[in-house]
Amino acid sequence: MGIISIENTDKLFWLGRYTERVYSTIKIFENRFDSIIDMDEYEYSEFCKRQDIPNIYSSREDFSQKYCFSLDDENSIFSNLMRAYDNAIVLREEIGSDTLSYIQLAVYAMKKATISKAPLIGLQKVTDNIAAFWGLADDAIDESQIRNIIKVGKIVERIDLYARMKEEPEKLRREAKRLLNRIDKSGMRYNHKMLAHVNYLVQLDELPYGSLIESIENLVGDE
């Protein structure tokens, strides 16, 4: 097994989280925005509330433009993609140039979408490249620990997002089970009691989404 520093362990974890955040928020956004078109002009405020982001937008159009493409909006999809890039760019040695290139391509696709006349359709290429990144990460990275850290990041982010969007309990139970199977293989330090608590919470009939978000956010790190 190669040597991985704490710093790079952290970066791999966040690379997993941010790629998942970008991928899933594009999907969620597309889904919700499709409904918003036929609903009240300010319906997007509910989306902001669930995502726990400030509603700084002045209209539906302003929301779709800034939330997707503005680098001045720290909660935008583009800002999150750049965070994924910032983590990936220092991990070339761990993940390899070919795998890294898909994050680079996702950034180019996002830049292209930003100046496109039909920007939202351009997001498809962003998700395509992230999916390719995950696929290649799984296939081309020899070190299983590296693959597992990225995957743990993805799952943690997914649980967090699903809880924020108050998704079906079954979806959360499935992700919690995957986390349980994966986290010890990553070699990461995590809070064992918190993991047990996450598993307890997802089994409840009335899912306490707020507590779940808090618990999953405090999972990784020293006990």
């Binding site: 190669g2 040597i3 991985i4 520093s5 704490i6 710093e7 790079n8 362990t9 760019i89 220092v90 070339r92 040695e93 390899g96 140039s97 070699g187 990461m188």
Partner: peptide, 29 residues
């Protein structure tokens, strides 16, 4: 980063290395 990948050497920053007992160490995760 490219030379690290191609030579198989570890790419590090100063924060990951430490001198102790007259030797240089990399601190892993």
């Amino acid at each position: 980063s490219y030379l690290a990948e191609k030579t198989g050497a570890h790419l590090v920053t100063g924060k990951e290395l430490i001198v102790e007992n007259d030797k240089l160490y990399f601190i892993d995760y």
